[in-house]
Each structure stands twice: as structure tokens, then as C-alpha cells.
Nucleic acid binder design. Sequence first.
DNA 1: TCTCAGTAGTTAGAGTGTCTAACTATTATT
DNA 2: AATAATAGTTAGACACTCTAACTACTGAGA
Lengths: 123, 123
Amino acid sequence: MAAELARRGFPDLRPALLAVAQHLQADGSRVTDLAERSLLTKPTVVHMVDELERLGYVERRPDPADGRAKLVAPTARGLEAEAAGREAIGQMRDAWAALIGERSMARLETELRRLREALWPPA
Amino acid sequence: MAAELARRGFPDLRPALLAVAQHLQADGSRVTDLAERSLLTKPTVVHMVDELERLGYVERRPDPADGRAKLVAPTARGLEAEAAGREAIGQMRDAWAALIGERSMARLETELRRLREALWPPA
DNA sequence: TCTCAGTAGTTAGAGTGTCTAACTATTATT
DNA sequence: AATAATAGTTAGACACTCTAACTACTGAGA
């Protein structure tokens, strides 16, 4: 994914940044939530958010609901990167389907989803 | 895998070491070959082999076929770790099959193999 | 309402993993 | 015999991740 994003004009989104950024909600996420979803510690996520902020992909806003918390939200550039990422995923998916056949690709997706939901049931 | 191996008595086999060690042939592999298979650079592999040697999992022997080359071969302990790893893989596979059903698991394996062979055809 | 335990985020510092550049020794080519 | 290519290595820098310890704020109970 980082290589695909680099080719599309986002060469500074390294894999470790994507590990965190992929979980960002458009209206802002808490550091604690990002840490839990990305299976990383809070200090690690803070570091990655620092970097994403420095690079212009996210900004920190105070959380109106809790004075201790902050919301990490994507900037306009962050949203562009997300759109590019979704496009890249779609193209990779189609390229793979072309290799093994649409039928096989659909089965693969179905079974992977099934396993994911068995291992990490959606809340 | 590192967590499973730790539980089985090999707590010092970190993920980065497994990335290299998983490609070791029983009769010895060259650093260049390990680098290509693990998608890492030669200096990185040298570093990991240094570590694996220090921990007692591999040893370096001269390659009788080429005076420049060396063969990195598993020690007795290295072979024990490999056996433990294979056992762990089998148990994880069965645990997942119990979650999603043997039929689904078999389909998943078939389609993953198909994709792997399309992306990286076996030489 | 005051206190204090718990939670959100952060900072500091260390260890690990990975790379590029440059080097040595040996082999293959001409 | 000279030179190019290859196998492995060393040096040094940067990136990633962790644990421990800290600040600020919240919320529950006396």
C-alpha cells in the first residue's frame, strides 16, 4: 500500500504511518482508540500522529466531550490520501482477480472475511 | 508465530529473525538467497544471521562449491525450533478450521495458494 | 463540595530492525 | 594477466516500538 500511495503522489506515507492512519475516522479519532485498533501502544501512536501532523495529513483538535481527550482528524490532504488508497485497493483487487479469476477472488474475500469475523468479532 | 514459539520454549526468536529463518534450508542456504527470498537486503540478512548464530540457531560453514560463499545451516536447536514451528502452524490451522469450518478453511487455503502462485510463480 | 482513583495524552530513553554506501575476498571473463 | 562481477561484510544513520514515568482532566463517593 505504501508503494502504491507513493506512486500516486504520497511518498511520505510509510507503512508504520498507514498502520495507524488506516483507522482514522473522518470526524476524528482518539489516540486511545487508534492504539487499540492498530494493536500498538499509546506512545507509539502518539509518535505516529506527531509525524502525520508534521507531514500535514492530520490535525489535533480538542474533544468537546472530554477535556482530557483530543480528536485526531484528517486534513484535506489526508482525505485525498484516503481516496487514493481506496482507489489503489480497488485496482489491486481487480488485478488479482484478473490473475486467479473473479470466482476465486470472490471466494477468497468471503472466506477471509469469515475468518476475520470469527477471530475479531465486530464489537 | 513468534508468540507461539515463545510459548514452546523459543522466546528469543523474534519476528524479524523468523522472517529470515523461515527460508533456511536444512543443508544450508546462502545469504544472498535468504535475502532474495525474505525480500530484505543482504546487510539486513547478515545482521539477522549474526543474531541467529549468537543465539545458537544457525552456524556458518564455508561453501565447498564457491570460496566466496558461506552456507548458513540450522543447528540441532534450530531444527527443534523448526519442528515446534510446524507444530504451531498445524494447531493454528486446526483452531481456525474449528472456527469457520473445515470446508471454509480448505477453500481459503486453496485460493491463497492459487494467488501466491500467480504472484510469485515457483521459479 | 472535596478528595482521590482512574483515564487521556505525553515525554524520555532504550533496544531493535532496516537501509545505503563502501569495503574485502574470491571467481569468472576476456 | 587484468578486470569485471559476485558473496559476504562493516559502518553508520534513520525509523519503529516498547516500558516507565509524568501532567491534566474527569468522575464517584465521603
